[in-house]
Amino acid sequence: MTKKATGAVGAKPRRNGNDPLGANSEIGRKLKQYYDELVSDEVPDRFAELLSQLEKAEPTQKKA
């Protein structure tokens, strides 16, 4: 008894005429949404303090 497989294996993705990227468009939208949320988050105080200490510890470089 063998069943005919249906589904993702060998299946071509459906493409809407308005959306040439198909499923990739949804992935792109999700990534952009995640990035936008990440960028809008505030920097934690402890992290900002560590960055400030690092900047002070680095030797000043002359710009050429």
Rank of each mutant, 00 (worst) to 15 (best):
D41N: 10
L50Y: 01
R15H: 04
K12L: 14
E49W: 11
S25E: 00
K56F: 05
A23H: 10
K12F: 09
K4Y: 12
E49H: 07
L51A: 11
K62T: 07
V39A: 08
S52C: 15
M1I: 10
K30I: 02
S40E: 13
M1Y: 15
Q53N: 06
A57E: 12
V9I: 08
A48I: 01
R46N: 09
G10F: 04
K12A: 09
L31N: 13
D45L: 05
G10Y: 04
G17K: 01
K32D: 04
R14C: 06
S52W: 12
L50S: 12
K56T: 11
G7P: 03
K3A: 07
A57Q: 02
K4N: 11
K63Q: 14
E55A: 15
A23N: 07
S25C: 00
G7T: 04
A8L: 09
Y35L: 03
F47S: 08
R14A: 10
Q61I: 14
L21N: 12
K63N: 02
V39F: 06
R15M: 01
K62I: 04
P20N: 08
G10C: 03
D36R: 07
D36P: 03
E37P: 02
K56M: 06
R14Y: 13
G28I: 01
Q53K: 14
A48D: 10
K56D: 15
M1R: 11
N24R: 09
A23V: 00
M1A: 12
M1W: 05
P13N: 00
Q61F: 10
R15V: 06
K56C: 13
K56L: 15
E55S: 13
L51P: 14
P59M: 10
G22Y: 02
N18M: 03
A11D: 14
D19E: 00
Q53T: 14
R46H: 05
K30V: 01
L31P: 00
L21P: 03
G10I: 10
D45E: 09
E42A: 14
T2C: 12
E42F: 13
L50M: 04
K3R: 02
K12E: 04
D41T: 05
E42V: 11
F47N: 09
Y34V: 03
K62W: 02
S52N: 13
P59G: 14
E37Q: 08
P20I: 05
I27Y: 09
G28V: 03
